[in-house]
C-alpha cells in the first residue's frame, strides 16, 4: 500500500549556466504516513528547500510525482500549509488578520465572527492573547512572528504541514519555547508534518522519523532514521533516554562524514533511490548487551 504522502522518483535539474545541467537530486523516493512528523536533515545546497517547494506546489520537479491522499500534487493548495523561515506575514495586516485571512480562504462559508473566533483560538494556542493580536507584525518580536505563522498554518488544518527551517532565525531560548508549543499543538491536532532543519537536537526532539540527505549536487535521501524515544518528549528528559546519544551520534556521523562519502553517485536509469531504514534501539531486549558496537540494524525496505 502507498503511504499517505508518496514522493516517487523526484528529480530536479537546473541549467548550470554553462550550457549543461546541474542535477540537484535524482529519483528521490520516500513516503510520509498520516499523522507522522518527519524531519529532513542535510547540508545547505542538498536540495531540501527544493523538495519543500515541490511538496508545497510552488515549484515543479523536472520529473517524478508527489501523490498525497491518492491525488497527484499539482500547484499550491490549502491542503498543504507552509510555514516559511522568514515568517512571511503580511506587514500591513494585524496579527489577527494575518491568521483570519487564511481561515477565511479555507472556510469561505463561515461568518466573520466564526472566522475571528477560530483565529483567536489558534493564536491563543501558541500563547498570543489579548492586546497582542491587534498589533502589526513589525511590533512583534521574531519569536512572536513565527508563532503567528505557526498559528496561521495550524488554523487551516491542512492535510500536510510543511515547515521550512521555522526556527532558523530565532535565538536558542525562544526556539526552545516554540518547539515545545509546536509539540503541544501537534499532539492535539494529529497533524502530518514535514519539516526542514539544520539542528540535530531539534530534529530528535520533534521527529518520528528523520530523513538524511547526502551532499549536493546529485543528492539523495540516503537514510530514514526512526526516533525510538517515546512521546510525550521533553527536552530535559530525552537526553537521559538510552537511545538519545546513540541516535545523535549516528546523525552527527552521517552529517559530518558519510553525507560527503555517499554524495555524487549517479543512479542508474529506472533505479529509485529509496532511503535505507535505520532503527537504533538500545532498550530492545533483542539487542545483545555484550555487543559493544553501536546498536545499528540496517533494514532494506
Amino acid at each position: 500500500m502507498k503511504p499517505y504522502l508518496s514522493i516517487e522518483n523526484l528529480t530536479q535539474k537546473f541549467p548550470d549556466g554553462a550550457g549543461g545541467e546541474l542535477t540537484v537530486f535524482e529519483n528521490a523516493t520516500f513516503g510520509v504516513e498520516k499523522g507522522e512528523f518527519v524531519v529532513i536533515l542535510g547540508h545547505s545546497g542538498c536540495g531540501k528547500s527544493t523538495i519543500m517547494n515541490i511538496l508545497a506546489g510552488l515549484a515543479d520537479p523536472t520529473s517524478g510525482v508527489v501523490v498525497m491522499d491518492g491525488q497527484e500534487v499539482k500547484g499550491p493548495s490549502l491542503d498543504r500549509g507552509v510555514v516559511f523561515q522568514n515568517y512571511s506575514l503580511l506587514p500591513w495586516l494585524s496579527t489577527l488578520k494575518n491568521v483570519s485571512f487564511g481561515v477565511a480562504a479555507r472556510h469561505p462559508e463561515w461568518t466573520k465572527a466564526q472566522v475571528a473566533e477560530h483565529s483567536t483560538k489558534f493564536l491563543a494556542m501558541v500563547g498570543l492573547e489579548g492586546d497582542v493580536i491587534r498589533r502589526k507584525p513589525s511590533q512583534l518580536s521574531g519569536g512572536m512572528r513565527q508563532r503567528v505563522s505557526i498559528a496561521r498554518a495550524f488554523a487551516n488544518h491542512p492535510k500536510l504541514l510543511l515547515l521550512d527551517e521555522p526556527f532558523g532565525a530565532l535565538d536558542a531560548l525562544t526556539r526552545g519555547t516554540i518547539q515545545d508549543e509546536l509539540l503541544k499543538i501537534w499532539g492535539q491536532m494529529e497533524q502530518t508534518v514535514f519539516m526542514i532543519t539544520h539542528d540535530i537536537d531539534e530534529a530528535i526532539l520533534l521527529a518520528d522519523r528523520i530523513l538524511l540527505m547526502t551532499n549536493g549536487p546529485q543528492a539523495r535521501v540516503a537514510e530514514s532514521v526512526e526516533i525510538t524515544i517515546p512521546r510525550p518528549r521533553n527536552r530535559t528528559e530525552i537526553v537521559e533516554h538510552p537511545n538519545y546519544y546513540a541516535i545523535r551520534n549516528h546523525l552527527v556521523q552521517f552529517l559530518g562524514k558519510r553525507s560527503k562519502e555517499l554524495s555524487g553517485q549517479p543512479t542508474e536509469p529506472g533505479q529509485s533511490n529509496k532511503p535505507t531504514t535505520v532503527r537504533i534501539d538500545k532498550t530492545d531486549p533483542q539487542d545483545d548487551p555484550e555487543d559493544k558496537r553501536p546498536a545499528l540494524r540496517a533494514v532494506n525496505s
Binding site: A56, G57, L58, G75, P76, S77, L78, R80, G81, V82, F84, N86, S88, L90, W92, F101, G102, A105, R106, N156
Partner: peptide, 26 residues
Amino acid sequence: DWVNVARTHELGAFKTAFLVILPAAA
C-alpha cells in the same frame, strides 16, 4: 514570499491582486 502566501492559500488572481499585491505596492 507574500505572493507565495497568497498561492498557498489558493487566492485567485483577483483576490491576490487586491489583498496582497495592491497593499504591498501601495
